[in-house]
């Protein structure tokens, strides 16, 4: 029997765990639509809250009953050693970029994107501030990727998976404006990632990969 | 030669790494005051920024030149397997509570405490909301600690170290109001932690342990 991941459709936080499972071969059943799971109802039930006291998703339940909340912990648990970082230094660097994604990317990216989705009041000043923060953060990523294809070591790790997933909404919602201060390295990095077969397993990433290839194409043109 | 941790004095984020090093025996030199390190100047130097592009502290530099930023990554690197969680499930649970501290404790704790430090403007509604959030979070911790002394397994882990350090500001700044909706389990848990010798290595915690013993005493009285 496979383990279950409770979430709602298109949840970028759940993608981290889904991609990790793709790489590691962990068997995972996604419960994201009724009747298996209805976000807003099922996660308020006493049974769910007894296992996941915060009522947040994604939430993981193994076939042995082992329960886990917080998306980074679930993705880490479903990863293999290659994704987690196979040396103490590599695994610490993976955690560094996972923390970076949560603490440096998500807050400004959400402040920029939420108004475009109509789920938050638009405020010009706050959006301009968020854009500047995103620009600063992409510059750090771009500098790091100047001489590297992957964030840690010579192959995909949970660091890359987490950072790309945390940028998903930016790519989908504000791709054009992202482009104007986009950095070639970032697009290359994201492009090479999202074209990997594990990533394309999700329709979401096929959209993403299309847009990033477009983005890459544009950047090549602009650079040319 | 020992590795160096760059920070400013009384930085609770650096305490996580310092306590981890205490437990694991990793040798760590703290650079937090002039001339070794001056926060606001040294972390803006080109040398520092080339190693730590965000310019944030704590920042770790090994005697082998290995550099790490993001406090959770540094604490994880300086830990031993017992602190990190010695099984895949335990290590995932450690990461779960580390994420919990960052995403559930720090935001409302900062919103409540910053105005008391004069760091931010006081806003009654925001403070009341933050108090409710802290109350909700402590209730989750309290429920989990109903049947446990430690957050993961039967001994101290990085989960405990991270959660106690993330509560430090609250203990120090709003101890009294915390008491009124404090939970006996939380105080016991924090009390047992901060009385451990590794924790008392820092003067900060000796203050904390005194106040928590006081808190524990008060709670016993109130329960009596």
């Amino acid at each position: 029997m496979a383990a279950t991941l409770y979430t709602y459709p298109e949840n970028w936080r759940a993608f981290k765990a889904q991609i990790a499972a793709q790489y590691s071969g962990a068997r995972l059943k996604i419960a994201s639509t009724s009747p298996a799971f209805t976000f807003g109802q099922s996660n308020r039930s006493p049974v769910f809250l007894s296992n996941f006291p915060l009522g947040k998703v994604p939430a993981y339940q193994g076939d042995d009953g082992f329960c886990l909340f917080e998306s980074n912990a679930i993705a880490h648990y479903l990863s293999n050693d290659a994704l987690r970082g196979s040396t103490p230094q590599a695994s610490a660097q993976v955690l560094q970029w996972v923390s970076f994604a949560d603490s440096e990317i998500i807050p400004p990216a959400s402040a920029w994107v939420f108004p475009t989705l109509g789920i938050m009041q638009f405020n010009k000043q706050a959006t301009e501030q968020a854009k500047e923060e995103v620009k600063r953060v992409l510059a750090v990523l771009n500098q790091h990727l100047n001489t590297r294809t992957f964030l840690v070591g010579e192959r995909v790790s949970l660091a890359d998976v987490t950072v790309v997933c945390s940028l998903l909404w930016l790519y989908k919602q504000v791709k054009k404006s992202l482009f104007y201060f986009f950095y070639p390295n970032r697009a290359r990095f994201a492009g090479c990632h999202v074209n990997l077969k594990q990533f394309l397993a999700f329709n979401n990433f096929s959209i993403l990969s299309e847009s990033i290839s477009v983005l890459l194409f544009k950047i090549v043109i602009s650079l040319a | 030669m020992a590795a160096t941790l760059y920070t400013y004095p009384e930085n609770w984020r650096a305490f996580k790494a310092q306590i981890a090093a205490q437990y694991s025996g990793a040798r760590l030199k703290i650079a937090s005051t002039s001339p070794a390190f001056t926060f606001g100047q040294s972390n803006r130097s080109p040398v520092f920024l080339s190693n730590f592009p965000l310019g944030k502290v704590p920042a770790y530099q090994g005697d082998d030149g290995f550099c790490l930023f993001e406090s959770n990554a540094i604490a994880h690197y300086l830990s031993n397997d017992a602190l990190r969680g010695s099984t895949p499930q335990a290590s995932a649970q450690v990461l779960q509570w580390v994420s919990f501290a960052d995403s559930e404790i720090i935001p409302p704790a900062s919103a409540w405490v910053f105005p008391t430090l004069g760091i931010m403007q006081f806003n009654k509604q925001a403070t009341e909301q933050a108090k409710e959030e802290v109350k909700r979070v402590l209730a989750v911790l309290n429920q989990h600690l109903n049947t446990r002394t430690f957050l993961v397994g039967e001994r101290v882990s990085l989960a405990d170290v991270t959660v106690v350090c993330s509560l430090l500001w609250l203990y120090k700044q709003v101890k009294k109001s915390l008491f009124y909706f404090f939970y006996p389990n939380r105080a016991r848990f924090a009390g047992c932690h901060v009385n451990l010798k590794q924790f008392l290595a820092f003067n900060n915690f000796s203050i904390l342990s005194e106040s928590i013993s006081v808190l524990l005493f008060k709670i016993v009285i109130s329960l009596a």
Binding site: Y8, P9, E10, N11, F39, G40, K56, S103, I106, P107, P108, S110, A111, F114, L117, G118, I119, M120, A126, Q129, E133, W169 | Y8, P9, N11, T33, T38, F39, G40, K56, S103, E104, I106, P107, S110, A111, F114, L117, G118, I119, M120
Partner: peptide, 30 residues
């Protein structure tokens, strides 16, 4: 997805808090 996303707890103000904390400790450290 947007509706669900709206229920996520995001610390939108984190950059503002980071900046305030940085200034506070820079002042503290002279």
């Amino acid at each position: 997805a947007a509706e669900c996303l709206a229920q996520e707890r995001i610390w939108f103000d984190k950059p503002r808090y980071d900046e305030a904390e940085r200034q506070f400790y820079e002042r503290m450290n002279g």
